[in-house]
């Protein structure tokens, strides 16, 4: 039974794309206010889990459940899940030419019932952009159009900061960032968690220990072949860095993980 006290409760989740099974029984529970890291080899299905939880229409859920504070996410379209408070920071955010960031952000906040007056909105936007060290020109640029890799990652964190989700699924927010940019992004995530008064949870997909040193996850999950095969404290991430997935997965007997 899903636990309504739990922010995210995923049990036995199976998902396919083009009738190929990618997720093969994912179990994961994230309590309010916790940061969980999800690590695993390329192709193990981490991004698929992110898409499956946020409602990408390309993925079919074939078994299992996923609830946010007891509400079943699976029958909902992506927009309704976002309105409930699920946020996805895309690994490769798509460009939408002709649509300015500022118009997009206002439309998103309006859709989530978080509309501010034009003046309040601009104040918020200016503040968050300054925190993320983003140039003012971002406002009038088209969504992700011609953005550098680092600009895209910051723009994703900016959206999270403005939308204040319940659950932020961050798909490799650190890939391709230099040390300074990484710290800015990590600070942005931490600010959002702290600003939510301990309510926002984070599922952080990453390959690197460095962002975990900034964000200090409560739990680290290891993903392999479409499911969570091990869960543990932050030390697990260090072991992966030292031994690699092969070394680690060879040693640790697969477990059905739960927090």
């Amino acid at each position: 039974m899903p636990d309504p006290a739990m922010l995210l409760d995923v049990a036995g989740l199976h998902a396919t794309i083009d009738s190929k099974e990618i997720l093969k029984g994912v179990d994961m529970r994230i309590p309010h206010g916790e940061i969980h890291a999800l690590m695993g080899p390329n192709g193990s299905g981490k991004s698929t889990l992110a898409y499956a939880l946020t409602g990408h229409p390309k993925y079919q859920i074939t078994a299992g459940s996923a609830t946010l504070k007891g509400t079943d996410l699976l029958p909902l379209t992506a927009d309704l899940r976002a309105q409930l408070g699920v946020f996805l920071s895309f690994q490769h955010p798509t460009a939408i030419p002709g649509v300015t960031m500022v118009n997009f952000l206002r439309a998103a906040m309006r859709s989530q019932g978080k509309e501010l007056s034009a003046r309040e909105f601009l104040t918020r936007l200016t503040y968050e952009m300054a925190e993320l060290k983003m140039d003012e020109s971002f406002r009038s640029r088209y969504i992700n159009d011609g953005f550098s890799g680092g600009e895209k990652k910051r723009a994703e964190i900016l959206q999270m900061a403005l939308l204040q989700p319940q659950l932020a699924i961050l798909d490799e927010p650190d890939s391709g960032l230099d040390v300074d940019a990484l710290r800015i992004v990590a600070d942005g995530v931490r600010r959002a968690v702290e600003g939510s008064a301990g309510k926002m949870g984070v599922l952080l997909i990453t390959h690197y220990n460095r962002i975990l040193e900034y964000l200090r996850p409560d739990t680290v999950h290891i993903f392999s072949a479409g499911r969570v095969v091990a869960s543990g404290g932050p030390s697990l991430a260090k072991e992966i860095e030292a031994m690699g997935y092969e070394g680690l997965l060879g040693e640790v007997a697969p477990v059905s993980a739960s927090a």
Partner: peptide, 9 residues
């Protein structure tokens, strides 16, 4: 999907 993932119908 990108826009819908932000809550936009």
């Amino acid at each position: 999907f990108y826009l819908m993932a932000r809550g936009i119908p």
